[in-house]
């Protein structure tokens, strides 16, 4: 039995060609949407219809990723994430907590009243906005400052430069397309990095005199290890600000949520006196119910409202 008529491409006003009616057992791989129905061809019938256009489905999937990666905005995002890790994390937080989460909270069906959902969404949006604003304001100049002192610490110190022979300088110039050797400006700079850089330079200097293959290999391994430590220090310096600002950011978020809700989102909830009297503690447990508390206890209830993770 071979029933095929349902596998018909209506969109193109054309019967499927024979190659699709008889499933290709091997030979070529076809990724078209219409191939979806061919899995059952061995059983003698085929009732699956994908409905997609010929030669379009995989191309569409590919083009989505390519479109995203080709986008200038995405280029900006990757550049921003590379330069400012903490601010990029809070930007993603802004998108998720400030946009996606409130939208989903409001759209989800539930027994809770609508007002609570709006407040929960406003709460989430406010926390996303403050998190992003605070992180960006604090960490962006810090990141640039770190970049400056880090770049300086990576340069050679004057004493080491004076020790270099003419051949070594010529060798450096040849390797670096004729660029001048950068010399450290800050004497009291970032010593945790500059010490490592001096060590690396000393090891590189050793390479000129060592010819033994095994010894050279060991020196290369040491250099690589030191370079990795320097890289680790750079990452730590850029990201440790996340820890430093975590507590003040959380406190600021909690303190600024009520005015933001009131003045930006024009949301103000009246306290439910009866409910507060009956079950003051149970209300605290509900993640998005902080605003059902008395407005005077708002800060405390917001603190209790947190259930884990970086809010």
């Amino acid at each position: 039995m071979n029933i095929q008529p349902i596998n018909y491409n209506f969109t193109r006003k054309k019967r499927l060609s024979l190659e699709y009616e008889q499933a290709p057992s091997s030979g070529f791989k076809d990724n078209n949407a219409e191939v979806c129905g061919q899995k059952n061809n061995n059983s003698g019938y085929n009732v699956n219809f994908s409905g997609g256009l010929h030669n379009k489905s995989e191309a569409a999937a590919k083009s989505f990723m390519e479109k995203l990666m080709n986008n200038r905005g995405f280029d900006w995002l990757t550049g921003f994430a590379g330069e400012h890790n903490v601010a990029a994390a809070s930007l993603v937080g802004l998108f998720l907590a400030g946009g996606l989460r409130p939208a989903l909270t409001i759209s989800l069906p539930g027994k809770k009243d609508k007002e609570d959902k709006i407040y929960a969404a406003g709460h989430s949006m406010a926390s996303g906005l403050i998190g992003f604003g605070f992180s960006t304001l604090i960490t962006t100049p810090l990141d640039s400052g770190i970049k400056y002192i880090f770049k300086d610490a990576n340069k050679m110190r004057q004493e080491d430069f004076d020790k270099l022979s003419k051949e070594e300088i010529a060798d450096y110039m040849r390797q670096n397309n004729g660029e001048a050797i950068p010399i450290r400006k800050l004497k009291k700079g970032l010593t945790i990095v500059s010490d490592k850089v001096d060590e690396i330079n000393a090891l590189k200097h050793q390479l000129y005199s060592v010819n033994d293959f095994v010894e050279r290999g060991k020196i290369y391994a040491k250099i690589r290890n030191l370079e990795n430590i320097v890289k680790g220090i750079e990452t730590s310096m850029h990201n440790v600000t996340e820890w430093v600002i975590a507590i003040p950011r959380a406190a600021l978020t909690i303190a600024l949520i009520p005015p933001i809700l009131k003045y930006v989102f024009h949301l103000e909830k009246r306290p439910k006196q009866k409910e507060v009297k009956q079950e003051p503690v149970t209300q605290n447990l509900q993640n998005n119910d902080a605003f059902s508390q008395n407005s005077q206890n708002f800060v405390k209830s917001s603190m209790n409202d947190f259930m884990g993770g970086a809010k």
């Binding site: 100049p141 810090l142 640039s144 400052g145 770190i146 970049k147 400056y148 002192i149 800050l186 009291k188 700079g189 970032l190 310096m237």
Partner: peptide
Amino acid sequence: QVGVHVCR
């Protein structure tokens, strides 16, 4: 200046 006087 932030780098020199704060970050360092």
